[in-house]
């Protein structure tokens, strides 16, 4: 009996050898970061008549959940017309590693599949109108003209929609997939 077991032991060892030679625990996980997920939105409003530009940044480096996003307030002057521009970026920051991927150019390049919507509450606090156009002549919303009148306080909600194949003259903020949906607390003084 004992002798006849020898071949199987050889089998078992062969298998184990294959198993454990692969066991080297050397791979280290990479920091998880998708270069195409928006983490940072910056709205820059420059007075048309010259003057100091106003910026507001909305940033959430660790994605949904986790740490709360850092949201700046947007403070504008009354009765002013601004040239607005907005940028979207994917940022990575941990330890001494910092890396930024700007996605604004991609959005502009794929303008026929994207549109940015500005919703202001209360209405009339700031009036945004889109000044840029995609290849099909439809607005994109990366460039805007923003006009304030009376002083007040409220919110500016910015929605970036991905609308591949569905963007049209009738598409709206309910069309397509939401990439970004954020709000800035806004004060006009």
């Amino acid at each position: 009996m004992k002798k006849s077991f020898r071949p199987y032991l050889a089998f078992l060892l062969t298998g184990s050898l294959l198993t454990f030679s692969a066991c080297k625990d050397e791979a280290e996980p990479e920091p998880d970061h998708e270069h195409d997920v928006v983490t940072t939105v910056t709205l820059t409003l420059t007075p048309a008549n010259g003057g100091q530009a106003v910026t507001a940044t909305w940033e959430d480096l660790d994605g949904p959940g986790g740490k709360a996003p850092v949201i700046e307030q947007l403070v504008l002057s009354a009765n002013t017309t601004y040239n607005g521009s907005i940028t979207f970026a994917s940022e990575e920051a941990h330890g001494d590693h910092h890396d930024t991927h700007d996605l604004t150019a991609d959005i502009r390049a794929e303008g026929t599949a994207h549109e940015i919507f500005y919703q202001v509450t209360p209405q009339g606090l700031v009036a945004f109108s889109k000044t840029d156009k995609d290849a099909g002549g439809l607005p994109i919303g990366l460039e805007t003209a923003a006009t304030t009148t009376a002083a007040g306080a409220g919110k500016v909600r910015i929605i970036l929609k991905h609308q591949p194949g569905t963007k049209s003259s009738t598409s709206n903020e309910n069309t397509g997939e939401t990439d970004v949906d954020i709000s800035f607390d806004t004060k006009v003084q």
């Binding site: 198993t19 195409d36 991609d106």
Partner: peptide, 25 residues
Amino acid sequence: DRHRNTGDRPQLDLDLQTHTTELVW
């Protein structure tokens, strides 16, 4: 995923390697 054009890269890329052995009498 269907995000903006990110070239040919996938958003999820998992690699699972498995060795199994079995000895049955």
